[in-house]
Design a protein around this nucleic acid. Structure first.
Lengths: 223, 223
DNA sequence: CACCAGTGTAAGCAAGCGCTTAGCTCGGCG
DNA sequence: CGCCGAGCTAAGCGCTTGCTTACACTGGTG
């Protein structure tokens, strides 16, 4: 078995994990750096930040333990790059989804963003798990950078809800609370997918988006 | 400072964490064993299973490193007891909530269970974090025991939804999917509470229970 | 008294940790 | 050719890990 296809990496490729970490040509650096990123995502997702050793990661990437430090300053640096890139792409996914429906009104926008984010979490559940659940392992400065992106995602959803309430097409007593609930629903997909049920990412996206609309819609039991 | 109030334990008590781990008299064993449990919950919640050392735990409980092994066979054993007890109490919380509304109909039952579980996750967010997010650290046998309890909780919620659909008071196209979404919403509270917003556990419980009813209720846009 | 089970500690073992160092190989360029 | 920087490794440093061992103290029971 050649180095480039060392233990675990084939699996990662079958996963669609590798393609998530491909890049225009190589802003991510040489091939080994990209292999390390993919290997690290896989390992972190399986055993968590503290449960993963740098030797684990190096092995999966087909490098010696010291090989990691040719491309990354530290284990935390490697983790940070994954987390930051993952968040940037998640935000981009959300923004793109909202833009793609144009000025179609709050309901369509809400549906689009929830669908896109849910599908994303399911399709990239390995990456999403790393990105969502080990944030406290980041240094305070790095954490803050990532938190800023998270706030943008939250603001995007909250903005759509507020817009809908203002336009009278949503009935949402507690916009902040519902924003939290929606993001929880979506985020949590990364924790369990694909173990419960056999839905495709797209089916799940549609389902959750429909549920979001039900939560926001004016309902008959208004009194 | 006396042993019984070693570093971290005072905080845990102010938390309401300790009271969660009190017991009839002492099915949990001697006082030191209970202190170890509380200390371990606190440490696991803060840094995860792999990020917590047995020396951490012993320190917080005011014991020497070896003191842990007087009461627990291993770090995993300690973690398992926490996880199992936590799950048993969560299940009990859900069942009690449903029973407390008697034969009040699916809507009232759904509201009761979501409210109770959400409130629980918020009030015991430290324990809940340990119990929900490090399950893969359990041995396969222990994991299966805990998974069995989780399936009961899932079945409880799904049962209420099915009941409501049969009775014609709910309109739920995908019962399994909505069950998953509801439990995600509830579970995820442990991840962020209390950092976002200043809601009390009870307020959050009411909010989420109301959202659950909106998701299940027949709605005007039926065609 | 002797004895013992229960509870605790001091010391330390083997293994694993993140990371560094010194040195190798190799392609490109003068 | 000689030289250089990039990529990589073998070896290993200092430290921490989960856990064990050998021993000490205590209160209750014969």
């Amino acid at each position: 078995m050649a180095k480039a296809t060392a233990a675990g990496l084939d699996e990662a490729q079958a996963n669609g994990l590798a393609e998530m970490w491909e890049d225009g040509e190589d802003r991510l650096g040489p091939a080994s750096a990209r292999r390390l990123l993919v290997a690290a995502v896989d390992a972190f997702a399986a055993r968590g930040y503290h449960g993963t050793s740098t030797r684990d990661i190096a092995d999966r990437a087909g490098l010696s333990p010291a090989g990691v430090y040719v491309h990354f300053a530290s284990k935390e640096d490697l983790f940070f790059r994954i987390t930051l890139l993952g968040h940037e792409r998640t935000l981009h996914n959300a923004v793109t989804a909202v833009q793609s429906v144009g000025e179609a009104g709050p309901a369509r926008r809400l549906h689009a963003v929830i669908e896109a984010q849910t599908t994303w979490q399911a399709r990239h559940h390995t990456t999403a798990r790393v990105v969502e659940y080990d944030l406290p392992c980041l240094s305070p400065e790095h954490y803050e950078q990532v938190a800023a992106i998270r706030r943008k995602i939250t603001a995007l959803v909250r903005g759509i809800l507020n817009e809908g309430v203002r336009a009278g097409v949503f009935d949402v007593p507690d916009v902040d609370g519902m924003t939290l609930a929606l993001l929880s629903m979506v985020t949590d997909v990364a924790r369990w997918y694909p173990s419960n049920g056999r839905q495709s990412p797209e089916q799940l996206g549609t389902l959750y988006a429909d549920l979001a609309l039900r939560m926001a819609a004016p309902h008959s039991s208004d009194s």
